[in-house]
Amino acid sequence: MSEVSTATTGKYSIESEKLNLWYGSFQALFDVDLRIKKGIITSMIGPSGCGKSTYLRSVNRINERLGYVKITGSIKVMGQNVYAEDAELVQVRKQIGMVFQRPNPLPLSIRDNIIFGHRLHTPKSEKVSVKKEDELIENSLKQVLLWDKVKDNLKRKATELSLEEQQKLCIARLLPVKPAVILMDEPCSALDPKGTAAVEELIWELRDNYTILIVTHNMAQARRASEECIFMLMGKVVEHAPTDEMFVNPEHEETADYIEGRYG
């Protein structure tokens, strides 16, 4: 990271300014201005179609492959615009990890899954010793509290794990490339309550080292597992406040109605 960027953004990991997004002729985001603090967990809540997933998917530019998406405004991650001319897509994605709604381990062994990202970003000429790889794998799996369960059969196919374990693995495989930000798109919605609790606990553990932005449908989860909360409605940000404040004393009526379950 350059010195300029650290100077301007000691505090924030993701800053968007006047972000507008269209799917064809349908506008999904309206002038979204957000500043998401570094090193904490921020959750995004709101009814279906409010644009929270769209926002998340704009941050790592994964929306782009849909040819009909048009974006104006900017999103800065660690002080640098991800949509800038000189921003390399591969580097953007390397810095910004993503966890999906449905666990999507690759149809490879557990070991190969974890080391996949690291291999992608290592030049062919550079030989990485098996020992170094093993270390990375062990560290990653330990961080997601999966090491003890899988250490004896790392050759097993990752797709054979339980959903909870798969989702933990999907988080673990981001860690070897050291992303600055981790985006999570309803990471627990495919899991049972026990799995949800385990993954939430894990997310909480990770919060000091990474900035985490988590989209969720589950308000109890937002309340339990985030420090700041953003409420979106119809493509606009309604409220952004510390989670405790928002749930106890929401500033806007729409927020209060949504939190109390009057719609959505």
Binding site: N60, F100, N104, L106, F116, L120, L174
Partner: peptide
């Protein structure tokens, strides 16, 4: 998507 989101 898993690959792309890791920068493949």
């Amino acid at each position: 998507e898993a690959c792309w989101s890791m920068g493949a």
